[in-house]
Structure formats: structure tokens, C-alpha cells
Design a binder for these strands. Structure first.
Length: 264
DNA sequence: ATGGTCGAACATCGA
């Protein structure tokens, strides 16, 4: 019998610095599973206690000191942990698990890619494109029904950024990245769930820079965080929410959580 | 056109 499963994803920009708002989010929203990116903590120092106290006893982490790092915190069992190194440089940017019914949940933190959108001038941009290329290759070989979520660091649609024109040459919305993400999406026949629930004509953001004087008034956001599924799961998704108020909480992340409700 | 802010860890890098 199908039951409800609510899966959240949040780039937290240090899980230790933001443990208070993570707890608040889990108390208020109570998703079954939370995927975190940018945990910025080595595995032995990961703060499991607060999660366990809230009933998230199934914990799968892939961290490293200082930078990057991903984690899956869950109230329901997780099996068959896998971690891909899609950048082939040892950075902790992916962890995946199997859920009930053989559904795979893949949590990814795509490299931001530096400031200059040219792989000849900027190694990081090349690494970002290579990462997406390896994900594309992987996408073509999937057999299980799969949920792919996380910080993709690409805002593909014109309505995924505050100004398409002004961001054409800004890493995250350049045509070369949008094309790379499109190739990835096509290779896995991935369904962009947020856009199943919010029409592509409507502006939708998940990230607002720390550098704005007033993020809410200027509203210069981008939709960098995504929840994609293989076609067999498309109709299992019954709701999707972007938690914009979290951007206004004390000591916020620059990203807000997204939550999708499935009947699986 | 430019600079604006965070966290980790303690100068600077990555975002």
C-alpha cells in the first residue's frame, strides 16, 4: 500500500553553524528524509545527536574537513549507501541510498564553478562541466526508479533567475551550463518536479545572495536547488514546496529548503 | 561599473 513520503533538500552552508535552524525546520516541517549539502564537517565531527533526538535515526554522511560534504537524515530505513566522485578529485559531493520499494535517492552538490565561465581560464568551471558530464553518463545507465535532488548550482530557465539578461554571463545561468544541465536531464529523462507544480512562466528561486542589503526587497534570487525524478516516479509526486521564509530566519543559509511529497 | 557577505579556521579560499 502506498504511503506518504516527504523528502526535503537543503544547502545548509555548515550544518554545525546552522544546527538551530535545521532543528527548527525539522520540528515545523517534519519531513521523513532531509538531504543536506555543504555540511562543511568531517564525518567524525558530524552532529548526529540533534537529529537522533528528533527521530532521524538513519544517518548516511559523506563529508570532509572545511568544504563541501553531503548527508541524508531519515526517519525511515536507508540501505545500500553509495558515493560517487563525479569530479574525480576526491571532493565529497554525493551520497545515495536505497529507500523502500527499491527507490534510489541520490543527494548531490554540484560544484559552483568559480567566477569565470570559461574552462580555459578557470579550472573550477571545467570541473563543474566535467562533473555534469559524468552525471549525464551515469544517468543513461539507471535501472531503478530514482530521485535526484540537491544543489545543482545551475538555474536553467529564464524564470529561474531574477534577470535572464543580466545573468547570461554569470556562472550558474550561462548558456553552456544550461545546455550541460539540459543534456543531463535528457539522458535520464529526468522530470523537474518543481516545474510540475509551479508553472515555468512563474519566477521561482531557492537561493538569495548574502551580499544583498535586503535579500527580500531586492529579490535577486536564483533556482539552484532541484528535485528531479525518473519518469516512473513522476505521478508519485503529489506536492512540492519551496520554503522561502527560512531565508529570513536568524543566521540563515543563503539557500532555502525544498520539500516534495510522494506517495510511494 | 563595483562591491557587497558568509564559514572554516585563522589568511585566504570557496561559495
Amino acid at each position: 500500500m502506498a504511503t506518504t513520503l516527504r523528502i526535503a533538500s537543503w544547502n545548509i552552508n555548515s550544518v554545525r553553524a546552522r544546527i538551530d535552524i535545521v532543528e527548527r525546520f525539522l520540528r515545523e516541517e517534519a519531513p521523513d528524509i532531509l538531504c543536506l549539502q555543504e555540511t562543511k564537517v568531517a564525518d567524525p565531527l558530524f552532529p548526529e545527536g540533534p537529529f537522533r533526538q528528533l527521530g532521524y535515526n538513519h544517518i548516511v554522511i559523506n563529508g570532509q574537513p572545511m568544504h563541501h560534504g553531503v548527508a541524508i537524515l531519515s526517519k525511515v530505513p536507508l540501505a545500500n549507501r553509495q558515493a560517487h566522485d563525479w569530479q574525480a578529485n576526491g571532493e565529497a559531493r554525493h551520497v545515495g541510498v536505497e529507500l523502500r520499494g527499491g527507490v534510489r535517492l541520490e543527494n548531490v552538490y554540484v560544484p559552483a564553478g568559480g567566477d569565470i565561465p570559461d574552462r580555459n581560464e578557470n579550472v573550477k568551471f571545467g570541473q563543474k562541466l566535467d562533473f555534469l558530464a559524468r552525471m549525464t553518463e551515469w544517468s543513461g545507465s539507471l535501472s531503478a526508479p530514482t530521485i535526484l535532488t540537491g544543489d545543482f548550482n545551475v538555474a536553467p530557465l529564464e524564470t529561474d533567475v531574477w534577470s535572464h539578461k543580466q545573468l547570461l554571463n554569470v556562472v550558474s545561468h550561462t548558456p553552456i551550463e544550461v545546455e550541460a544541465l539540459g543534456g543531463l536531464q535528457a539522458a535520464g529523462k529526468w522530470v523537474d518536479l518543481a516545474r510540475e507544480f509551479v508553472p515555468p512562466q512563474e519566477k521561482l528561486y531557492t537561493w538569495w545572495s548574502y551580499r544583498a542589503q535586503d535579500w527580500e526587497t531586492s529579490d535577486r534570487g536564483r533556482r539552484l536547488d532541484h528535485m528531479w525524478v525518473t519518469p516512473d516516479l513522476k505521478d508519485k509526486a503529489v506536492g512540492h514546496k519551496t520554503h522561502k521564509p527560512c531565508r529570513g530566519w536568524g543566521k540563515p543559509s543563503d539557500h532555502v529548503p525544498i520539500v516534495t511529497e510522494f506517495r510511494i
